[in-house]
């Protein structure tokens, strides 16, 4: 559990940096060193939902994972035991966003791809859901 929490802390921290970077750079030119077309992706009509840039949703996600993992490393893993579900949702959303880049925009943004990889690793590292019993006797 401890190594799991540490891995999640590291991954979500990288995610925080990534999404904060994109949040700061919103509307400004972003250096695209590995891939081609950061501007196209980050300024496309898919880059925001109801005016909120997707990077801020990503930030909220990574903050949740990070908090859960930090609490788990302090002995309280209740939040971390539930993190699988948001991680799964994030993973599915990431697949959709990579699909948008590949098939609709035909342009890739390295920061978005990094985020997709991080979300995938987070999903792999997050504890798999167990059946939760609400009746304490069963645990005894």
């Amino acid at each position: 559990m401890r190594s799991r929490a540490l891995a999640l802390i590291l991954l979500s921290f990288l995610g925080l940096v990534d999404t904060l970077y994109l949040g700061i750079k919103r509307g400004k030119p972003v250096p695209c060193t590995i891939t081609n077309g950061c501007e196209e992706v980050l300024n496309s009509r898919f880059s925001a939902i109801a005016g909120i840039p997707i990077s801020w949703f990503g930030f909220a996600f990574y903050l949740t994972v990070f908090s859960a993992a930090v609490f788990a490393s302090f002995g309280d893993s209740r939040l971390l035991n539930l993190i699988f579900w948001p991680a799964l949702a994030g993973f599915l959303i990431s697949i959709a966003l990579v699909g948008v880049q590949a098939f609709i925009l035909h342009a890739y943004c390295q920061y978005c791809l990094v985020s997709a990889i991080l979300v995938t690793l987070i999903l792999i590292a997050s504890p798999k859901p167990k059946r939760i019993s609400t009746i304490p006797e069963q645990a005894q």
Binding site: L16, V17, L20, Y21, L63, F66, S67, V70, F74, D76
Partner: peptide, 16 residues
């Protein structure tokens, strides 16, 4: 843990 989380976000923001 809360302090640690706040600190980490601040550091991440600084790096960004």
């Amino acid at each position: 843990p809360l302090l640690l989380i706040i600190l980490a976000v601040a550091i991440a923001g600084g790096i960004a």
